[in-house]
Design a protein around this nucleic acid. Structure first.
Lengths: 214, 214
DNA sequence: TAAGTTAGTAAAATATGGAAACAATCCCTA
DNA sequence: TAGGGATTGTTTCCATATTTTACTAACTTA
């Protein structure tokens, strides 16, 4: 467990972005300046320095940041070296897509189980994993020490699935169902609602002067 | 084109949420109070009244809001009655999932075309639509007056696809590729990066005291 | 050693958002 | 028809978060 030096949420949201930007830098580059990174991430350079200063003293004045040190530190701070295990519940189209999605593994997350209660799906394979019934959830969570639950069920089942996941000791939930999940102490919940994203876009579509943020 | 009375971004983000909450209300309920809606949306009741006041004078003092009026006004403000047409580019697992996703149509968006440049995919069907090559994009955009482009390609193709979409007159882009797209005046871009969402979760996983926001 | 670069950080400026509070308005009932 | 209770619309204030500025410290190169 890390100590809780508080990093502002706005900064936390930019850390994965910085990591992504570093991947765009040519492999023979060894260092990078805050202004160059700022340009890639499309933020102010002082912002970059300030954000990175939360991770410690990483750069060298007059020189810049060593790319590999920076990458390591970002990964460390974000917990990407912990090898968190995740399960996906609800293996419809979206769940399957998430199961196949390479970006998770690439960042150090391991999908260790797929779950669905549809008898027609149980025991079939997706992305090299066998779909199991929810009754097997607890067993899996113990065996693999699952920390993250990804919910891709229809809205009406999301809350009960969330409850089950939390009951199994899962401490973080990424929710794709279009419902607002109950808040539970010590459980982190992030929701991605595809339809809401499109609705927000739609609002700004009629108002080209305004600029959507974030 | 709507006049540009400025609604704060934080409010715009809550409007689809209110709409979602209204769907949870029993059908024989005819009205709803700000406090009840606040409870469903998990926000302060003053917040609800303030947010809704941006849409005009919808409620009745001493009574509350008429649900169907409120719903209509939310849909109107969000542009959900405009019948925007959208295309999806990149019909991999995620693109297919998005094509099947019912939440879009339900909210008034019509997916009118699927595009991919993989010869193995072209002319095959997904969700009742035939996958077309990108060279057909312009034709479709004109024919259907496409306003929204959804990008679900690998990161390396996302920017060129975005350029093409914008060239075809698309004014809003929902981007699922893990790259930062170039900003273009009068084009709205929203990005959803699945891996970044998980990374943010991962940060807070090690720090149970802190609470992730938004 | 001097000039040029660049990180780290304190502090100011800005923006935003949330909560409280209250007057205005409506419904209901006696 | 008057009064009490309920609930919105809106103003105002407060708190806080975020961004930017500006400056100092430290390094590199010539």
């Amino acid at each position: 467990m890390k100590e809780n030096k508080k990093i502002p949420p706005a900064t936390v949201k930019r850390l994965p972005l910085y990591l992504q930007c570093l991947d765009q830098v040519s492999d023979n580059e060894i260092g990078i300046s805050s202004s160059k990174l700022a340009e890639l991430a499309k933020v102010n350079d002082a912002q970059v320095r300030r954000d990175l200063s939360y991770l410690g003293t990483l750069g060298t004045r007059g020189v810049g940041y060593d790319i590999s040190t920076l990458r390591n530190q970002l990964q460390l701070e974000l917990g990407l070296v912990e090898g968190w295990s995740a399960v996906i519940v609800g293996i419809g189209n979206l769940g399957s897509a998430l199961a196949h999605y390479g970006g998770f593994r690439e960042k150090g997350f391991g999908i260790v189980g797929l779950f669905d209660d549809d008898p027609k799906k149980i025991n079939s394979q997706v992305a090299g994993l066998v779909i199991k019934p929810l009754s097997d959830l607890e067993k899996y969570c113990e065996k693999f020490n699952v920390a993250i639950g990804i919910i891709a069920t229809p809205g009406e089942h999301a809350q009960s699935v969330a409850d089950k996941l939390i009951g199994c000791g899962v401490r973080s939930i990424l929710n794709f169902a279009p419902v607002l999940l109950k808040n539970v102490p010590n459980v982190q919940i992030r929701s991605v609602d595809l339809s809401q994203e499109l609705q927000i876009l739609s609002y700004y579509l009629d108002r080209p002067i305004l600029k959507a943020v974030d």
